[in-house]
Design a protein around this nucleic acid. Structure first.
Length: 679
DNA sequence: CTGACCCTTCCCAAG
DNA sequence: GAAGGGTCAG
């Protein structure tokens, strides 16, 4: 295979030789070349926001700023990787010292360095939603509240509630009153659980996602020396998707910004779609007002969509009251078709239409990876998945479940978590309950024995876990497995250091987990191949701690790194929630389930909350602005599978927000191939 | 401890 | 209309 090798040319002045004026439009250039200080860039959909940010980074590097003095905050790790990759292609400077990532990953990075200062160790575990749930369940169980007269909120409800408290900065009482009023009579108990939850995280050396932000902010507030250090480090801060930052994130930015660092935030108020996790549009709306001498740039030339689609999107968002007025101008000339408005009988017809249209497009020469099907909620993709499978159309799906959150991946990593963080009770419980004959009861006893042994609190792991374990009383049935578990953990140590992540996974699989998978699941092959992918991914890591950290911070949109699909490089259709499609684009978009109660979502209609409905409309806006060339708006008239029986659906109100003349109505009829006739 | 059975809940979006 | 949680017998 030929090797591709490119020389990065350096201009005589030491700069990259980029002709910024030529490669950017005047609006983009103004933002990219902004002087030091504070700047807000309002960049409409498809206006080259990513391009602007990457060129800004290049500009800074070109003007003598060192990579280690730049902090780039993005919404997903994937976005960070892409931007850094593009910067690297642009400039000759080494970008390895540039900090780029999500708020969570940056927080995690800072906290690892100073874990001891906040009562944790460097090997703290990051809890995902599932771990939080287990921890909360055991806490609730231990309290043993009297729930005979009224039911107590479930663990995952409490997890959302506590998360909202943290992300909005409101008190527990206010959040309950505002969003969970039906739990008000449990207020005192909920507060107790919250306190116990925080204590337990501290005891077990664990942090949840929110802690990564909150504890970073607390650390910087608490320690002037560290704050000064990081302020001095991050002279230039850039923030992407600023409209979706929440209060804690904003606080972190402001702390690092200090009195004289440069801060450029980029965003689009029309694309704010995360208020439900605490995002606050006021952060972007109030940004200039809060700062002296803040420059505001507006980028309104759209390069992505044909005018037919862009005009539609401009009309669609106009129905919202809360917004900056802007008018995106299309750079592109007219396309081949108006957006299609397609009423179909039911979800099956909807799926059939999408599939058939995809095949036709493919015949016309369209690559499948230029096509996406977008929806409000993951479950709405079901019929599409089945139909595409049936017709042999390859697709990738961004499911709600992250790679790391699958049971078998979590099982394997529980071993690694426990070896590195011997206070990690959740991991311990998970690990030992894999043994035959061990359930919650014996797991509890074993954990107590482990605590009593004293090894949980020592800085170094025992030379041999098996020796420590040998003294424990275990159920007869589990004796063999228990001993084997000790040996597996021993293998994960090399003298006093840890084995490589890939060696650890190998030990777990060979030692017992492969057998467990075979005995437990009927889709053994699938799960085994996931673990293989995990092992492959782990090959890139020497250090177990950074491996585990990466794993828990990976989202499914960050995707391929953990190797979800990636078999071959065959082009595939993308199926995605609208939220996860943010920042991406395709030539053809199918937007499905445009019915009242589906999109806008039923709960939002029930709540009768204008602000939430406007966010829903912004979501619609995000969806249609993903399309470059073709847009299909689909509306199923009947929903046969709603769990209270078949119901007729009204078309989404969003379809009435623009003049009918802007779309072309497609009348869909159907015919049966004689072989497939139902009668 | 495990598996069978019944009951309730749920189907909103994610780092 | 499935799936997860709780309960009870073996």
């Amino acid at each position: 295979m030929a090797r591709e090798y490119q020389i990065k040319r350096k201009s005589p002045g030491g700069g990259s030789g980029i002709d910024y004026r030529k490669e950017l439009n005047p609006e983009q250039y103004a933002a990219v070349s902004s002087p030091d200080g504070r700047a807000l860039v309002i960049a409409g959909a498809g206006s080259g926001k990513t391009r602007t940010l990457t060129y800004r980074v290049a500009w800074l590097l070109d003007h003598g700023i060192e990579a280690r003095n730049i902090l780039l905050l993005t919404f997903t790790n994937k976005a960070a990787r892409e931007m850094i990759g593009r910067v690297r292609d642009l400039v000759a400077q080494d970008t390895a010292d540039l900090w780029a990532g999500t708020f969570h990953s940056i927080g995690s990075r800072i906290l690892r360095r100073h874990a001891e200062d906040i009562g944790h160790t460097r090997s703290f575990t990051i809890l995902d939603r599932d771990d939080q749930k287990s921890m909360l369940q055991s806490i609730i169980k231990a309290f043993d509240f009297d729930t005979t007269k009224k039911r107590f909120p479930k663990a995952d409800v409490l997890a959302s509630l506590f998360s909202l408290v943290v992300n909005t900065g409101q008190s527990l009482e206010d959040v309950i009153a505002e969003r969970y009023e039906y739990f008000e009579e449990w207020f005192e108990e909920i507060e107790k659980v919250n306190v116990a939850y925080h204590e337990k995280k501290q005891q077990t050396n664990c942090m949840d996602f929110d802690d990564l932000l909150v504890k970073t902010v607390a650390l910087l507030k608490d320690r002037e020396d560290l704050l000064a250090l990081y302020r001095k480090k991050f002279r230039h801060i850039l923030v992407d998707e600023f409209q979706d930052t929440n209060r804690v994130q904003c606080e972190l930015i402001e702390l690092l910004e200090g009195a004289d660092n440069s801060l450029m935030v980029v965003g689009d108020d029309a694309q704010s779609i995360y208020s439900w996790r605490g995002a606050d549009m006021r952060n972007i709306l109030a940004f200039p007002g809060k700062r002296e001498q803040c420059r505001v740039y507006s980028i309104e030339t759209n390069y992505r969509s044909v005018p037919e689609i862009l005009d539609l999107s401009n009309e669609a968002i106009r129905a919202n009251k809360e917004r900056f007025d802007k008018n995106l101008r299309a750079e592109r000339v007219g396309g081949v078709m108006k957006p299609a408005m397609v009423a179909v009988e039911d979800p099956n017809m909807q799926a059939a239409f999408v599939a058939q249209r995809i095949l036709e497009l493919q015949n016309e020469g369209m690559e499948l990876d230029e096509i996406a099907v977008l929806y409000r909620a993951h479950f709405q993709s079901l019929e599409i998945q089945m139909e595409l499978t049936l017709r042999g159309i390859p697709f990738v799906i961004t499911s709600g479940l992250r790679f790391f959150e699958q049971a078998h991946i979590k099982d394997v990593s529980a071993f690694m978590r426990f070896v590195t963080n011997r206070r990690d009770e959740v991991a311990f419980q998970r690990m030992v309950q894999l043994l035959d004959g061990v359930g919650p009861g014996s797991a509890d006893k074993m954990w107590s024995a482990w605590l009593k042994s004293g090894w949980a609190d020592k800085a170094d792991p025992p030379a041999r876990f098996s020796d420590v374990f040998a003294a424990f009383k275990v159920p007869k049935k589990a004796a063999g497995g228990w001993q084997q578990l000790g040996f597996i953990l021993d293998e994960m140590l090399r003298d006093k250091a840890f084995a490589r992540p890939s060696e650890m996974i190998y030990s777990v699989m060979e030692g017992m987990y492969d057998e467990y998978l075979q005995a437990t699941y009927d889709n053994y092959e699938q799960r085994k191949s996931d673990v293989d992918k995990l092992m492959e991914f782990s090959g890139g890591f020497e250090d177990i701690m950074s491996f585990l950290e990466q794993l828990s911070l990976l989202s499914n949109t960050d995707g391929e790194a953990a190797g979800k699909e990636e078999t071959g490089n065959e082009a595939k259709v993308t199926l995605s929630s609208i939220h996860q499609s943010k920042g991406l684009e395709w030539k053809v978009i199918f937007l499905i389930w445009l019915a009242e109660g589906q999109f806008p979502n039923g709960r939002i209609l029930e709540s009768d909350d204008d602000a939430m409905l406007e966010e829903e409309r912004r979501l619609f806006y995000v969806a249609i602005t993903r399309a470059k060339d073709q847009l299909y708006l689909l509306y199923p008239m009947i929903n046969p599978k709603s769990y209270n029986g078949e119901i007729m659906q009204q078309p989404s109100r969003f379809l009435g927000d623009f003049p009918a003349a802007m779309v072309e109505e497609w009348k869909v009829g159907s015919s049966w191939d004689s072989d497939d006739a139902p009668f």
